[in-house]
Amino acid sequence: MTSTTAPDTTAPTQEPVTPDRPRTTLTRRLSPFGYLSPTIVLIVVLMVIPIVMVISYSFRDNVIVQENSVFAGLANYTTVLTDPNFLAALKNTAIFITVSTVAHLILGLAFAMMLNTQLLGGVTKAIFRIVYILPWLFTIAVIAVIWRLLLDPSGVVNYVLQTLGLLQEGVNWLSDPGKALWAVTFVNIWSGYPFFMISLLAGLQGIPNDLYEAAAVDGANPVQRFLNVTLPQLRPVIISMAVLDLIWTSQQFALIWMLTGGGPLNVTEVLSTFTYKQAFSEYEFATASAAAVIVLLLTMVLAFFYVRLQKER
């Protein structure tokens, strides 16, 4: 914006002062907003208004389902924060997003390094590149259906593990309360690691070879080169990706809903499924809004760190 207005700054000094000047200045000031107006309208209609509405709903009772809702203060927040199901969902969400993000990072980095190595030929790397990126090409619905079939007690996973002698009898991966959360997290890891891999691969390809050569001259072994060259160079990408992944994974709804619906016994209930049930099953839009606002606040903390990191860069 400054660059567009800068050339005009000399103009007034060359022209005689006329009554038009205030209008010209006003025009200059408003022009950027005119160009930005489509975006501003979109943001207001699609973001600001819905968010403000949800926040206002969270402070009222009987919203949406009754015409005359009443102000309820913090009652909905108290209800949500003392609900054992919400607290369980919060704990499950923390486990789900932490394990998913760490695994995405480790797998993504491992596969990216493999695709960046000089040890494999171009064709081999191209084949692996396609294979590794496949999970990213499927929609969540397809992933859920595929993994429901694979993890079925009579499915392929149990068959393979039993054939290999690793299991004596079939496991109920998605319906055993002790295993369901881990099974769902595993599927989320499977579906999400390619994005990490691609981003880290781009980061790896941007590291100057000189650094590795200098480290080799200094006598650094491969592990030392990884720890002292690769990781420091990738640090900004890793941190940005990790924060973004934490935010995205905390929003994950469709995969869990289609795999387990939050069951069995609520062991896979996360904040998104909890909020959905409050709204569309119990028709408690006020408590659903309160839960959504809490999720928004938690996400904003992560977003704050992300923005700060971006500014530092």
């Binding site: 209008r23 006003l26 489509p38």
Partner: peptide, 22 residues
């Protein structure tokens, strides 16, 4: 003057049109 007023009208008109369209 005329140029300034015309531009202002255009900007406001465009913004209004976009807003009305949305």
């Amino acid at each position: 003057m005329a140029v300034g007023v015309t531009r202002l009208k255009r900007v406001i008109g465009a913004a209004a049109a976009v807003t009305v369209a949305f």
